[in-house]
Design a protein around this nucleic acid. Sequence first.
DNA 1: TGTAAACTGCGAACCACGTTCACGGTTTTA
DNA 2: TAAAACCGTGAACGTGGTTCGCAGTTTACA
Lengths: 213, 213
Amino acid sequence: MADAQPIWNRPARGARGPAPSHSRAEIVAAAIAIADADGLPAVSMRAVAAKLGTAAGGLYRYLSSRDDLLDLMTDRAVGELEPYHDTSGDWLDHLVALGRAQLDLHRRHPWLADVIQRPSAVGPHALSFFDRCLGVLAPLDAPTSAKFEAIALMTGTVVLFSRSAATGPNPFAGLDPTAHPHLAAALANPSDPGRQDLFDHALRGLLRGLLTP
Amino acid sequence: MADAQPIWNRPARGARGPAPSHSRAEIVAAAIAIADADGLPAVSMRAVAAKLGTAAGGLYRYLSSRDDLLDLMTDRAVGELEPYHDTSGDWLDHLVALGRAQLDLHRRHPWLADVIQRPSAVGPHALSFFDRCLGVLAPLDAPTSAKFEAIALMTGTVVLFSRSAATGPNPFAGLDPTAHPHLAAALANPSDPGRQDLFDHALRGLLRGLLTP
DNA sequence: TGTAAACTGCGAACCACGTTCACGGTTTTA
DNA sequence: TAAAACCGTGAACGTGGTTCGCAGTTTACA
């Protein structure tokens, strides 16, 4: 009953009692270090507590659930996108640059793709990012709903490319060419252009298609 | 060591011994029923086994892990998209129609969004769907990589809309207007056009932007 | 100043989960 | 007919999130 509010609006500690040995920031940092090194499944309460030299149950003095921890991790990582420098020039260039920064962030923290979609993970830094994108789009005359979709799908594109970079060999091993003729034909000719600016090109096309009449 | 192959290439049973009381199809149907009713976390081995009136350990005669079960569930659900009727007319209209069918599928099985991204979930029906999309795009003169991205992002759009329909109230409750001015302004004027064809419009814009020079 | 309330870290415990295993019974192969 | 392969069962293992009681510590208040 103590957490009717999301964790960002909850105070870290009360007034009485001894000073805590740790802090939310310290716990979140340890959890992110584990996730960066060994992946999200390795982020167990016991592992995080062990990295801090404490017991698992003690973490619940600082958070009320593992989901809270994931939310804090997410928003802290998103905070690495700041500070945002000033807006100038074309909105499309600017938004693509924001998307590329987001992609870099996801490459640094591959676990982000697995936690970022949960609604509870929208924290203050995520709001700042969202607000920033809307600011870039402000001079554009497009319906608000279209701008919302565009930003959401930009993140979707980031997740897509981040995941495809982290995945192993393609899942099309040993498929039947007669059953899937078009797929076989497409895989036959490796007409990949420069893999470098594939992301830029895709994101540009997406945004232009979504925000241009 | 028995499952070096993905589960679709593994035989269901051996030659000797008594006839099995169940089948993979029956198990998958029970699991899907549970997921549809109570969500993906409710799909535990024990719950699926209980619905079949058997013990949890017995399921491992048919599958080798819970991930296998999720893979089978995914591909079976994707199979509901078939049969595909003949191609005719504009490629864009056709692809949007495929996307809408995909969205209907995700509304019927909201848990799909949480399992569809895993690489191991690409089964024969998913390959058929992919091949079908490529067939629709065949007359189009665009690089293969662009077509792949477009199809992947189409699925991303479906997941986005499916999730936003399933999510509760918006996560922008009680935000600080001074900290996020653009966001507050955007939320102030409810300029939502008809929520009906929002998906169609977004998907059209996305595909056109991605596949048009 | 003293006492009660609120807080701290700690460890044991609970429960659910995925998975394994030995067992007795059943069907096929040789 | 005997051996081999398979079946379902139920108990068990290990791990995970979470709860709880305990003893010690700090603050608020009379």
